[in-house]
Design a protein around this nucleic acid. Structure first.
Length: 615
DNA sequence: CTGGGGGGCGCG
DNA sequence: AAAGCGCGCCCCCCAG
């Protein structure tokens, strides 16, 4: 044991540094604190560049615990054996912790078998406060404040400057310097103080329910991130080969029309268009980007898509997109230890309360069967993917929130709202509605739900429907939407009035989103609906994970895509867990909206691959 | 050489 | 008066 004195922020702290876990735990037990600041330092355990950050490529070097009363206990794990942690695990079970970016601590500690720790995340508190206090239109008064790192939030909320220069120091070094140990200790103090301050704000803003849901999600996310998604690399390689061939064919065709032009440069394309005599007569009708240059956005220029030059260009862009985003580049995210994609799920970042996914983003994989079938389990492991979807979750949440009797009646009867809308537009009986008409109605429902204008609807239809519609027709259809969902429209207007008065809107569980005045018309309506759908999903996933653990099934969450969950499950438990998934999702809906109709709410299937489990 | 904005596009 | 929403990642291009 080594004791260090740490003067920091006008206070004197004591650091107790241990290399022996028995005395470490013995001392911890003497402290009365129930809430502890927690941080870990990790060292590289692999040559990969991500080593030190990725739980599979790192080893924990230090565990730092702050008792909230001037004492920091630091355990150096360099020379500890795995079974040693038993006493620490036991000590941890009835304590609460505070960490910054708790997902990092949870995922790393999970691999040492520290399960379901009660951790508050100061980063999530910080993001939630930010979303409540600042719309993107507000800018940011704190110039140096950027992102939600501990350093940034310490400066913003505690007016503290903490150095991060030692973070990248060598945590593999056999002997750590006093400066390194002090650096490691400071983070626990700062995140402890930060969380106390931010937690008061959360209560003041009435966001406790919402925060508690996020907190419970930490373990769900940790499970998904650690589990990851398995891919069949051969399928991917084959796919890339096919895309490359298609791209080069398309490129050769483009060469006839575009001389010395980078097809990936919108700027060069715009110049080419402006100077091409063939386009002289239609140039005035060519749509433009917000900043005023000619656009080559596929959905904006659907009027000109039949012109050979444009058709060739679009064909090239299609494969160029696939190759650049879903080609070879994707594989750099494969984990060298597990061979899987361990996506990062970002909690609380999205203003409506959804999750987002990055490195790689698994939430925007092409719907293409060939792509999704590369997410495929090895049959030798005797596992299946269970894929379950909410059916039309946002429409259902819209109905539940507004209590629109037309929507609720349809869901109660098991009717399809898109088919009903198609029937209303065409004056047909629902049973006579064609596939094409339903497709248009789908665009009607999705578009007008959040206040789309008739004009935009025309271009929107062009992308999702084969035949164009006239302006007159667009206004007529908009009228039908407003009549059909009159109660929903009334609720929408109420939401707008409320948001105008308060300057913010909330999700059903109370997550606050500040809105600038010109955001209100659409976002005051969208946020409760999209946010409500996210909250339903969160409740469902928490329930599902708890029940899988409680009942001892061999299954783990693998991913989620806004209204869809993917579970990896041992063959012999697939039937039982599929039922559990369905039950959990219905439970999530009813927990948030007790009166919601739930027939046809969930669809679930299982198979070796993501593609096959969707059928 | 890096960072950031714009344009574009994949998903829900 | 008019207004779909929510993301992340790719490439280009320009500023520092």
């Amino acid at each position: 044991m080594k004791k260090l004195l740490l003067p920091f922020n006008d206070t004197k702290y004591s650091i107790y540094y241990y290399e022996d876990i028995v005395s470490f735990v013995k001392l911890l037990k003497q402290r009365p604190s129930k809430i502890w600041g927690l941080d870990i330092e990790t060292a590289k355990a692999h040559s990969d560049t991500r080593a030190g950050l990725d739980p599979y490529l790192s080893k924990i070097r230090l565990i730092q615990l702050y008792d909230g009363d001037g004492n920091i206990f630091v355990l150096d794990c360099l020379n500890l054996a795995y079974p040693d942690f038993k006493d620490l695990r036991l000590w941890i079970t009835d304590k609460k912790f505070i960490a910054h970016n708790a997902i990092f601590e949870i995922t790393h500690l999970e691999l040492l078998d520290f399960k379901d720790m009660d951790i508050t995340c100061s980063m999530i508190l910080g993001i939630m406060c930010d979303r409540a206090e600042r719309s993107p239109y507000d800018g940011d008064e704190t110039v140096s404040y950027k992102g939600f790192s501990l350093q940034a939030l310490a400066k913003k909320y505690l007016s503290l400057d903490i150095s991060k220069t030692l973070q990248v120091s060598d945590w593999n070094s056999p002997v750590l310097t006093d400066a390194q140990i002090s650096y490691a200790a400071i983070d626990t103090i700062v995140c402890y103080d930060l969380a106390l301050k931010l937690f008061k704000k959360i209560k003041k803003y009435n966001m406790l329910k919402s925060y508690k849901l996020f907190k419970r999600m930490l373990h769900v996310i940790s499970e998904m991130q650690l589990n990851g998604m398995e891919v069949d690399k051969n399928k991917h390689t084959y796919l890339i080969q096919r895309w490359k061939e298609a791209e080069s064919t398309a490129y050769l065709k483009c060469c006839k029309y575009f001389k010395d032009i980078n097809l990936n440069s919108p700027k060069q394309l715009a110049t080419w268009l402006a100077n091409n005599p063939r386009f002289k007569n239609i140039l005035s009708a060519w749509p433009k980007t917000p900043s005023g240059s000619y656009t080559f956005n596929r959905s904006e220029i659907s009027d000109f898509i039949r012109i050979p030059e444009i058709a060739a260009l679009m064909h090239y862009k299609q494969y160029s997109k696939l190759l650049s985003t879903y080609g070879e580049g994707l594989t750099r995210h494969l984990n060298p230890v597990t061979g899987r994609y361990h996506t990062q799920f970002n909690l609380a970042q999205v203003r409506t309360g959804r999750l987002s996914s990055s490195k790689p983003n698994l939430q925007n994989m092409p719907r293409d069967n060939a792509v999704r079938s590369m997410f495929c389990l090895n049959p030798a492991n005797k596992c299946k993917y269970i894929v379950a979807d909410f059916s039309q979750i946002e429409m259902r949440v819209a109905g539940a929130l507004s209590k629109d009797s037309y929507m609720l009646k349809a869901y109660t009867n098991g009717d399809d709202l898109h088919t009903l809308m198609a029937a209303a537009i065409t004056h047909k009986h629902p049973s006579a509605v064609t596939k094409k008409e339903r497709q248009l109605a789908k665009a009607v429902n999705f578009g007008f739900l959040y206040g789309m204008g008739a004009k935009k609807f025309i271009t929107y239809v062009k992308t999702s429907y084969p035949d164009p519609i006239t302006e007159e027709e667009a206004y007529r259809i908009r009228g039908i939407f407003y009549e059909t969902y009159a109660e929903y429209i009334a609720w929408s207007n109420q939401q707008r009035i409320k948001a105008e008065k308060l300057g913010f809107t909330r999700t059903p569980l109370g997550r606050l989103r500040k809105l600038a005045s010109d955001e209100i018309y659409t976002k005051a309506v969208n946020t409760p609906v999209q946010g409500g759908a996210a909250e339903v999903l969160f409740i469902s996933m928490i329930r599902l994970r708890n029940n899988i653990k409680r009942l001892g099934y061999k299954a783990k969450l693998a991913s989620c895509i806004h209204d869809e969950v993917i579970v990896e499950c041992k063959d012999w438990d697939v039937d039982a867990v599929t039922k559990l998934v369905e039950e959990s999702m219905v439970f999530g809906m009813l927990k948030l909206f007790p009166d919601a109709p739930v027939n046809g709410l969930v669809e679930a299937h299982s198979a070796l691959s993501w593609a096959d489990a969707k059928l």
